[in-house]
Every structure is written in C-alpha cells, then in structure tokens.
Amino acid sequence: EIEQAGFEVIVLGYKRQMWKSVSALSHIMRERQIDIVHASSYHPSLYARLAAIIARVPVILGYEHVIYNNKRMPRVIFNRLLAPFTDGFTAVGEQVANQVLEWNQYPREKMHVVHNGVDISRYQPAKLRIDAKEKLGFDPQKIIVGVVSRLDPEKGHRFLFDAIVKLSPKYDVQWIVVGTGRGADKVYQEARDRGIEKKVEFLGLRRDVPELLAAFDIYVFPTLQEGFPNSLLEAMASGCAVVASDFPGNLEVAIDQRNALIVPMRDSKRLTQCIEQLLQQPELAKHLGEQARHDIVENFSLQAYAGKMSGLYEQLCEKKGVVRE
C-alpha cells in the first residue's frame, strides 16, 4: 500500500540485528544525502537515530505516539543518552508528550505536539446513511452501533459487550465490531462469556472503513489505552454520534456534550446509559455527529497536520543551516 501510494520502500531484512541495521541505514543516509530523519517507535527510532548520528544527518527527530503503562528503564536510558543528539521530538498528543518528558527528561523546548490528522475527503458523512447501509448489505432500517479498532482487551470491547447484554433485548440494533489483532481470541471469548457472540457481527480486517463508518449511526470507543485516537478522528469525521471513554488522549478531540458523550473508563453502566440515550434521542445523535464533523474539519484535517509538520521541518532546517536548491 505504501508503494502504491508512490513512496519507495527499502527492506533491510535485519530483524532486531542492531548494528547491521544501523550500518545499512547510515550508508543509505550518506548515499542519498538525507537532510531529515524522523524516526518512530523504540527500536526503529534507536537504530535510525544512531545511524543518523553516524551519517551526520543535519536534522534528527523522534516521533512519540504511545502512552505506556510500564516504564522500561533500558529504553529510558538509551533515550536519555540520545537526547543531546536529537534536534526535536514530536508527540501525537499532549498526554503522550507529558509522559515522554517526565520519563526521558527531555528538554521541554525540544518537544512539539502535532496531533494526527484525518483525510476529511475520504472520511465524510454519507448523503443518506440508509443508502450507505444498503450498499454494504446491512438492513437499512436498523440503527448500527459499532467500533473499529484493534482487537485487544485494552481497547475495552468488553464494556460494549456489557451494554449489548442490557440493550439488545430492548432495541433492534445491528452491533458491529471491525478489526483484528493478537488479542482477538480474548475479545471473542469476552463476547461468548456474555452470551452475545451471535448478536455481534465481527467483520475482521476491512479495507472499506470509510464506507463502514458512513453507515454507522453510533460509534462506541471504550478504550483503556491510547496515544491519540486515529479511529476516533475517523468516526467523528464521518459524522457518527460518538460515545467514548475518558481516557486522556480521547479528551483532546472529544468534548462531552459538544461533539461526543464521554463516560468514565470501565464504567459499563454509564456506557450503556449513553448508548441508550442516543438510541432514544436521534436529534441529539444527529447534532453530536454534525458537530464532530465540523470540529475535525476545523482542527484535525490532514492539511492541518501537514502544515504543522512541514513548518517544524523548515524551522529546524533553518536552525541547522540546511539549504537545498
């Protein structure tokens, strides 16, 4: 998919072979006269920043996108050692940035928060949601309540399942879960434990997520672990009425009673109440969805993201005296 989008992909083939990877990367950087290295995640960032130092790349950046539950001291030590040679760090959200600054003790002036963006031309409300449902083979007369996320217990599917136990006898709703992941078996078991596995449509990995979200009426996002939630951005851009947990990353985009309904994490009862409120009050659901779309277009578009990131690159290149004709 990356290649199809027009980008070159180079496969080194050295899985967790640190110095071979660093050597190969530094060779590529020197050969191609790379000006900026922006490296994500721990191992890729470690290897890439070491290679960039060896290759004398002018601008070196780290990219932070996850809030961790446990501090791993070897990683913290390596990050602190590389910090003086790193020109800056980007974080996808304020909460991610705060954790990184606290754990790794980076200088605050090196940290830049650049929220993720969403393609608002690809993710947008359907002109008629009923048509979007029909095109995908769903019953156009039923309300669709669903979630799109990695199948993992930390995403909180079990709290949605608790709500389904309470609401499915009362409302004729299509309950849909989209996604796959290493925790899929556990999530499936959570559904079986509640006896609702036949009430939920597990659609697995899908490439038509924009079309699916355009058919959703209500999007439920009870996550317990998130950096900054791309799937939430996509649902809001699609005009879904959102019920989301109060995990800090969610609160940087979802505002209770403005563009979403926010519930405490792990609170199945409150989650159930908010879903039922939207089922009973379609005008409220419509308002929240429209406001969500408006807020994403104004603040979290890909254009906004690209503008902020390119501005940072230009600022750092100017600071380091990088000039390319």
Rank of each mutant, 00 (worst) to 15 (best):
L284K: 09
S149M: 12
G88S: 09
R75I: 00
S21N: 07
E134N: 14
Y63W: 13
L312Y: 07
P74W: 02
N259I: 04
M309R: 15
Q225H: 15
D295I: 11
E3R: 15
L271V: 01
S168G: 09
A184Y: 07
G289I: 09
L212G: 04
S41F: 14
R192N: 08
N98E: 15
K308V: 00
V66F: 07
A132M: 09
C317Y: 06
I176D: 03
V11A: 00
A91F: 02
G307T: 10
D119G: 02
R182F: 14
V253S: 08
T86D: 06
G156A: 06
L232C: 04
M265Y: 08
I36P: 01
E197K: 13
V173A: 08
L213V: 00
Q4G: 11
Q174I: 10
Q315C: 06
E211M: 12
P58D: 03
Q105D: 09
R108F: 12
K71S: 06
N98V: 12
I275E: 01
A55P: 01
R72Q: 11
V297L: 00
Q273D: 15
E201G: 11
Y68V: 01
L61S: 02
Q281H: 07
M73D: 06
I144D: 05
V209P: 10
L232Q: 03
V113C: 03
F85E: 01
H112T: 14
M236E: 00
K166Y: 14
Q4D: 09
L312V: 03
F216T: 04
Y123W: 10
S121R: 15
V263S: 04
L167C: 09
G289R: 08
V242A: 08
